[in-house]
Amino acid sequence: MYENAEEVIARILTIVAKCPDNLKEKCFEVLLRGYVETEISIPARRTANETSVLTEREDTSIEAAIPEAVRQRFKSTAKRLSVSLPKLAGLFDFGNDPFTFHALVVPGMNNADKTRKVALLVAAKTYLATGNWIADWQEVKAECINQNCYVSTNQSVNLQAGEGKVWFKSVEVGKNIELSAEGQKEAQKLLTLIAQAE
């Protein structure tokens, strides 16, 4: 493993250098993660039988990585969304306590659309952690910065615009954003979409 690491990292750095300053760190993280994951998996070298045994082992180890307090909620959510547990769990970093999102790309046509979807995802994460469909205002802001869609003066306007009126019960600066039943459905759809794409 990692025989060509020096060469690959040099290439990654060349690509990162071409990115805008505020995206460099993110870009490096995504590319390096991609390389490490490729090195870890190397599916072509495995026979079908080995693959199935390994997949089973990986599934068990992923399940074990999910903290016991929320494992059942993860399992039932994965089942409800018809997504495999490793795919759903793969969106989160359980090395942090409580768990956080791994680097992910939130879809959206513009800043406002992306901001609303970030709020849905943050609420989905809170649901998995505590059972409440609530997005923490500060967490939404931080994730919007990660997704490059944070517009300080327009954050609450962006959240309330368009489908925001239907998805969120109320939006007030500094307050939690509670999802409506419609918002919860949308958040689950989005979670499924991202989990399947990862």
Binding site: D97, P98, T100, T130, I134, Q138, E139, K141, N176
Partner: peptide, 25 residues
């Protein structure tokens, strides 16, 4: 970039999020 963003990231750090979650519950 250097004052507000670090503070936003701090407010969304896992320990701070856990604090907000506890208060919300």
């Amino acid at each position: 970039e250097w004052v507000i963003t670090p503070l936003i990231r701090f407010e969304a750090s896992p320990a701070q999020v856990a604090r907000h979650d506890l208060l919300n519950i």
